[in-house]
């Protein structure tokens, strides 16, 4: 099955990003496709390369990038939500790109299920 994933909360402050990451990983490793993950609301902070969690904790920003590279997942940060929060290309982590909300609608159209992770 083809899943579209939407992440609506930032990393570390909320479980949503962890759960979305685990769902996405399980889906692609189980033979499903996740062509794109769309980050909205505080979810845009998942793409901040300046994020530096403590060494003994998981680094979600890096994990997302690695998963995307391994499985060909398009990680899209919403531009309007990103600008509000100071998320710009200069601080964008590897594997992420910034684009418009249209990419979310397109994801809904192109996949069998859209799964939203948020509060």
């Amino acid at each position: 099955m083809k899943f579209g994933v939407m992440v609506n909360e930032g990393p570390f402050t909320h479980q949503a990003s962890d759960t979305a990451y685990r769902f996405t990983k399980a889906a692609v490793e189980g033979g499903h496709q996740v062509p794109r993950v769309f980050f909205y609301f505080d979810g845009v902070n998942n793409g901040n390369k300046l994020s530096e969690p403590q060494a003994d904790d998981r680094n979600l920003v890096k994990l997302w990038g690695e998963l995307a590279a391994a499985h060909g997942i398009d990680l899209v940060i919403c531009v309007a939500a990103a600008l509000r929060r100071g998320m710009k290309d200069e601080i964008l982590a590897e594997g992420f790109r910034i684009s418009g909300l249209g990419q979310l609608v397109e994801l809904g159209l192109a996949t069998d299920r859209t799964v939203v992770f948020g509060d």
């Binding site: 060909g72 398009d74 159209l109």
Partner: peptide, 15 residues
Amino acid sequence: NAEIATEFDTEGVQK
């Protein structure tokens, strides 16, 4: 690294 598609064909799809 796997190839990443950034455009999907959604022509004519309505949901």
